[in-house]
Design a protein around this nucleic acid. Sequence first.
DNA 1: CTGAAAGCGCTTACAG
DNA 2: CTGAAAGCGCTTACAG
Lengths: 343, 343
Amino acid sequence: MGNGITIKDVAKASGVSLATVSRVVNGTDMVSEATKEKVMEAVRSLGYNPNNAARALVSHKTNAIGIVVHNLHDPFFYDLIRGFETGAQQTKYNVIFCSVLGSDIKSKEKYLKYLTNGVVDGIILYGSYLTDESVTRYLKDRDAMKYVMIENDIPDFSCNKLLIDNTGGAQSAIRYLKNKGHHSIAHICGNPNKKVTIDRLNGYLNEMRLAGLEIHDGYIGHTSTDYKSGYERMREMMELPCRPSAVFCSDDAIASYAIRAATDMGLCVPKDVSVIGFDNQTILPDCYRGPRITTVEQPLHQIGYDSVALLSQQLEDQKTVTNVRKTYETRIVEKETVAAVGK
Amino acid sequence: MGNGITIKDVAKASGVSLATVSRVVNGTDMVSEATKEKVMEAVRSLGYNPNNAARALVSHKTNAIGIVVHNLHDPFFYDLIRGFETGAQQTKYNVIFCSVLGSDIKSKEKYLKYLTNGVVDGIILYGSYLTDESVTRYLKDRDAMKYVMIENDIPDFSCNKLLIDNTGGAQSAIRYLKNKGHHSIAHICGNPNKKVTIDRLNGYLNEMRLAGLEIHDGYIGHTSTDYKSGYERMREMMELPCRPSAVFCSDDAIASYAIRAATDMGLCVPKDVSVIGFDNQTILPDCYRGPRITTVEQPLHQIGYDSVALLSQQLEDQKTVTNVRKTYETRIVEKETVAAVGK
DNA sequence: CTGAAAGCGCTTACAG
DNA sequence: CTGAAAGCGCTTACAG
């Protein structure tokens, strides 16, 4: 690794001690201008770069932040990643991403074990998978590490938490539909392994009850881990004896497939059936070309940015030990897939 | 970092030497079943995990691979990232991503300096930026590191190179259009900082010459670093006195904006003007909803997968020192944006 | 302002 | 099969 040049070579070349080279390179203690120049000259001509493993070992600091997500390729992450990148650009920390495919808990553990043992100073974890129990147990044990959990409120785990009001957002979606005159409102759930799916389902259930709206047979559709299955669920719902006039989809990617299904059946969205999604996802999978999807927005870019900024700030001032807990509000973004009915 | 449990604690708890613990944990040398069990028990009950910085320092191996790209958020990367992820899943190496925003060479250098000094054993670098000179100079000096350069054939730099025949691909696009009866073919170039832009432009120029087709005034449009500027370039071309019947765009993202421009001007693609792109990009920016774009495909998923597989295999068997050089061929994928004319 | 020395947590010949 | 010891490349009190 590296080019083989160590601090020793620099010390020799410039005729000073290792300690002095270290001080010059790090700009810590006072060093006379003369020796500083001698050392810098040697650093330059030798092409010296400090070994990060050695630094980490002795200083217990890596100056790096790790971000762990599932399915980094998912266009869902577009805004979130931009947020991370923008945050990264503003910090001295090196920001590295790790991705696990699907809900492969084994690789998630592997990456977390890797990162938490001498590789990064802090970790940003996005998303809550119901299969995460062993991961959580492991993390709780690493108390020296700083965490930002996004969209994941692990009980009994005190760390920074940036949360989204998913239940409230789902409720606002139902209220919005009701105000548009809809009474027959169905729900297509998301990935069954994610906690967010349950939260949004609960929001649907709560608000339907509060609004006094009946949930007919077949009004709750469960997708697989694949957004695509939203297509089949929508198909089934559209063939229900008591066909819903509106469908709340757990996320925009599912909504995009649901709208394709309706369209393929000869139905017009929103004239024949209204659809509302969640996320306000900028980029949809699989070249969606339907109407712009009315949705419940969560501020993903902001959250990505905030998470990096928060973590690097906390790592810098060691005083700031108080963990942040913040819940981001959602808002309805009206586009083209919900129509008013009745009235 | 970590949980504070070191190899010393394990040695003490199980009544053996550090060396023995190391041997058990790494499964290297022979150790008797009895002591092996004692040690493993201590490892488990203490929750010991080896410190990667210490390991890296002494063994000169990190068991990690770094991937560096520009604009990780760009949906262009969808297939490539899936390829990286799939490759990562199949290797014991920890795969980490670093992203630099725009063509921020300063951060690129920062990340490369970080990775190459005790953090990873090998690096995959995607893309060729014309501003990369200092980066290249730096990398050439790190000969102990293994590299896979994708889409970047740095002269005098011997490393693994996975290349795409961009010039050939561009030529095939022009030939394809000519075979469809087009004689007035314009070209919208891509990001001026990328070498790929020049290669594809050269392909266009070559093939136009070979085909004996004239490049009229205004037939070559230059975009900024933003795909969006493809919109303006297309607008201008459509107002040319000698309006082209077909436009070859340097990539699909630009093509998507070009098609929007034509459509907004009341032109129909491909009836009034044909458009061909490059990349066969699965997911387009900014919710494109036009026709499916006929394009020159490059096998991004395969390249992503191959790069990780190649690097981890080379790091494993140290004998395989011969660098691989492979050029992936492109192929035309006919979709909905090119029509035949004349005849 | 500068240096000698200890030590971070591990691995790996070298002995036995 | 197991242990004592050296050393990876750095930083940081501690002296001076």
